[in-house]
Design a protein around this nucleic acid. Structure first.
Length: 225
DNA sequence: GCGACAG
DNA sequence: ATCTTGTCGC
């Protein structure tokens, strides 16, 4: 497979991403919310994927799994999912408490072809997913106020369609780039990221997954209590 | 050609 | 992402 073929595959997949309000997942009473993050070992040779499961609304860690595989694809902006999803799928299979919603580290539909890793993973798992990225990949937005919980719409290149949000999750911190991944509306995506904030820049599922994926056993042990 | 570029 | 020391600010 060359990049041109993968690009075509993304374009094909993008048509199947569901982000319409009519098909929005009903999160009136979610029991579990998941988070994902991926790290690397040996200079990128090994991919380490972590998936955590938190109970809702208490946002306590109930389970986490880690999968390690040999890295088979380089990092290319716009093609991140091909590098990370194989390990994430493996971690997902090990999870006993399948969450109702997954917060994925990276973009959802806020992507040049409308299919960032959150959307790609949501499609593969047929799961509602939300993209939570720490940096912008694609899109434009108005200047964001410094006030906590201030947000702006993230618009596509032509500024005609909304592809996500820019959210000031914490004072004096760089904003988060939120976009629906799959089976969630943009409104719902923003709502549940905000619902998972606990005074830190990252929502709890993402923050916990970060701790697990980046090998912080002390921190992980604290999270479990 | 030049700049931009999730993790 | 990862490698890494000190350092500025609440």
């Amino acid at each position: 497979m060359n990049l041109e073929q993968l690009k075509q595959q993304q374009l094909d997949y993008a048509c199947r991403i569901i982000t319409q309000d009519d098909f929005d997942f009903d999160f009136s009473e979610p029991r579990y919310i998941g988070g994902t993050d991926v790290g690397f070992e040996n200079g990128g040779e090994i991919t380490r994927a972590a998936i955590v499961v938190l109970s809702y609304p208490d946002l306590a860690l109930v389970e986490y799994k880690i999968a390690k595989i040999k890295t088979a694809f380089p990092y290319i902006p716009g093609y991140l999912s091909f590098r990370e999803y194989p390990a994430l799928l493996q971690a997902w299979q090990q999870i006993d408490h399948k969450p109702d919603l997954l917060l994925v580290d990276g973009q959802g539909v806020a992507h040049p072809r409308g299919i960032g890793i959150a959307s790609h993973l949501g499609l593969l798992l047929n799961m509602p997913t939300i993209g939570v990225a720490k940096k912008r990949l694609y899109g434009q937005h108005a200047e964001l106020a410094g006030t906590p919980l201030a947000y702006e719409k993230l618009m596509d290149k032509s500024a005609e369609q909304q592809i996500g949000w820019v959210l000031r999750s914490k004072l004096r911190c760089n904003p988060l780039f939120i976009s629906t991944g799959h089976r969630v509306s943009q409104q719902t995506a923003l709502k549940w990221v905000i619902n998972c904030l606990q005074g830190y820049r990252l929502p709890e599922p993402t923050r916990f997954a970060d701790a697990v994926a980046s090998n912080k056993p002390l921190f992980v042990r604290r999270l479990q209590r």
